[in-house]
Amino acid sequence: MTQANARAVTQAKAPRNNRLRPARGLASGLLSVGTLLGAFSPVQAQTIPEGARIVSLGGSVTETVFALGAGHRVVAVDQSSLYPAEARALPQVGYFRTLSAEGVLSLKPDVVLASEGSGPPPVLEQLEAAGVRIVWVTDGSTPEAALEKIEVVAESLGLDAEGEALRRRVETELERASHLRSRVEDWPSALFVWGRGGGGGGVRVAGSGTGAATMLERAGAQNAAAAMNGYQPISAEALVLAAPEVIVTPQSTLDALGGADGLFALPGMSATPAGQNRRMVVVDLLAFIGFGPRVGAALNGFMADLHPLLSSPRE
């Protein structure tokens, strides 16, 4: 479903991004600021010049920028930009869907690399009006979306060579995963478990339509929770019914549950094949479902753990 979206990745998604619009409504009539704003010169550049100040919104977009070697140009990131570590040291503009126009402007950015869904929309309009270029980057829960992100970000940064190299690397990794998967005869039934511990509905599993489900499928595993939609809490009985052979979980969840013992002590878990064999695979959450440049590596790493008997000829 995201294929179509991914195709549409383009800066034209923000149709007005290169032109300042005169202030609308109340203000234009009342304060005649339209003429005032008309004095701005439109931003013409297609690529972002070397000295430009970048605000990067969205974990995978930030990862992409850093992977392209342009991390030094980033002056601020959003709350979800947790990788790489350098990004965490930068000023934060908050949650990418509740940005503050003045807060972002105070960083004097030239460009905002905005993940799809960045907002609220009027704030981005205000930023555009202030002469900040907005580059929209489509988000998607597929490895292909990661490739699109690399293309868009590299092109906007004028890093065509770096972009091409990074893209090829990820593509190769994905191809290898795909090739590996073709040799998997018996797809194990896997369950992605995510969330906090502490009883109640603290733990949720990845149903259909989730990024984690996509990754399971790409890795050659059946999603034991395919009957569910989205990330949902699961009852003990449904867990027994789902009968996963392997539990896939991020390290943070494992820590919250108190390690493997906590995980396999979840109600119903002992009645599943995974619980009986204490079989689990730990993944890096951001790499696994962030769909950034690390997706290929994450997929291969995951497959190596998931299908330990499958020796890779090219490894």
């Binding site: 202030a23 304060l31 005032l36 704003l37 402007l105 202030a130």
Partner: peptide, 26 residues
Amino acid sequence: ASAIGVELPWAFGEREALVILQIRAP
């Protein structure tokens, strides 16, 4: 003042004008 057509001696840039009139005022 400039918004109502009066000039005052303090210099300001477009960004200041935008922040005041289009972000803070509304």
